[in-house]
């Protein structure tokens, strides 16, 4: 591996985990990518995490919403991290 994008190149056709801005996480098969990290993912599961503050108890409530998408395009500038998901926690 010579440059970081090689890690993405080696993940083509694999299921990858993508962490995006705005507490958005994606897991799907990597079909294509470019130098901006624009991605095409297939059979994607999207998880959006949001927190609300309970006015009464002042406690944080963490909400996770998930949905499935057949195929999507991710604009590179919102990507924070990409990982082959084998050992993700």
């Amino acid at each position: 591996m010579e440059e970081p994008l090689d890690l993405i190149r080696l993940s083509i056709s694999e299921v990858v985990f993508v962490k995006c801005r705005g507490d958005r996480e994606l897991r799907g098969k990597l079909h294509a990518y470019d130098q901006h990290l624009n991605l095409i993912l297939g059979d994607v599961e999207e998880t959006v995490t949001s927190t609300e503050i309970d006015e009464e108890t002042d406690e944080e409530i963490v909400k996770k919403q998930t949905r499935k998408v057949k195929m999507l395009f991710v604009r590179g500038d919102i990507v924070v991290l990409v990982s082959p998901p084998l050992r993700t926690g």
């Binding site: 591996m1 970081p4 994008l5 090689d6 890690l7 993405i8 985990f17 990290l37 590179g76 990507v79 924070v80 991290l81 990409v82 990982s83 082959p84 084998l86 050992r87 993700t88 926690g89």
Partner: peptide, 24 residues
């Protein structure tokens, strides 16, 4: 590209582990 990577939240707590990861 990081190997044996660990993710820590702003609170300093371990949130996740990744074998390899790419950081933009």
């Amino acid at each position: 590209a990081l190997e044996q990577s660990e993710e820590y939240g702003p609170d300093g707590l371990l949130k996740a582990k990744y074998g390899d990861c790419f950081i933009r």
